[in-house]
Design a protein around this nucleic acid. Sequence first.
DNA 1: CACAAATGATTAGTATACTAACTAAATGAC
DNA 2: GTCATTTAGTTAGTATACTAATCATTTGTG
Lengths: 146, 146
Amino acid sequence: MTQMQDDPLALDRQVCFALAAASRSVIGMYRPVLAPLGLTHPQYLVMLSLWERSPRTVRDIGQALRLEPATLSPLLKRLESAGLLTRQRNREDERSLDVELTAAGRSLRTKAELVPAQIVERLGMDVAELERIRDSLTQLLAASDG
Amino acid sequence: MTQMQDDPLALDRQVCFALAAASRSVIGMYRPVLAPLGLTHPQYLVMLSLWERSPRTVRDIGQALRLEPATLSPLLKRLESAGLLTRQRNREDERSLDVELTAAGRSLRTKAELVPAQIVERLGMDVAELERIRDSLTQLLAASDG
DNA sequence: CACAAATGATTAGTATACTAACTAAATGAC
DNA sequence: GTCATTTAGTTAGTATACTAATCATTTGTG
């Protein structure tokens, strides 16, 4: 009944605000969980992409994570400094950079396998509900990404 | 059937990835829409909070937007430089900083009122579906924010 | 009332994340 | 076969966003 709820500009009505705030908040939950692995959340996502396939090019990782190469470039250098991956030019196409896990990078996976369950537990939400939300977000991503 | 879909670390299974990617992608849609107003997306959210109530303290805005004062401080200075608001110490409590819209800040609202419809149109999604997603995200925010 | 504790904002330092501009390498048109 | 075009990454510049440390003011305790 208040004017606020009818107002299209009311903060609490904005999908973009709910999205931005939830994203920051959930990523914030990962911080203490990922700290023992020496990873930030974006770095964790890069590692997930490499555990699925390695080596991959910067372009390929960027397409998987929807990140610009300009964002990935320094991020990958930090992971290289941490000893988790190597970066070297592709022999067949010198423009491409192959990013490949090191032994340390591969073995970090064991610790990472414990992460998802810890997050779900801290969230205290139903897994089925979380999967529903994930699917809605994937749909939203497709609509905005076109 | 592939091992990937059973893998708890598969990128496409992560709520956090869907959340981060959708957030960046949707915020990216706002960029061309907000550019004519001279606002970034976080600045737009600050303006939404001030159109609801002005003046407000930095603390108060931070609680509404779930942003740290350290994030808001430089952001508010930019909006002050843009002439959209003023910043001055509260008379009754000199620790607090009152943030108040200027005439230019108030009048920008007219242009901003056209923003939500433009985004919905570009997304091409059902408004009811978007509201469902927003409510799920609000729920997720509450679970992660505790 | 003096002084420790708490509160509100700022500053410093690190890490994303974007666009735009640039470099180097490969492709394609003629 | 040469040269314009395209493609892959990097660099520069700006704006978030966080934690930790700091500063100033206010509150609360004895």
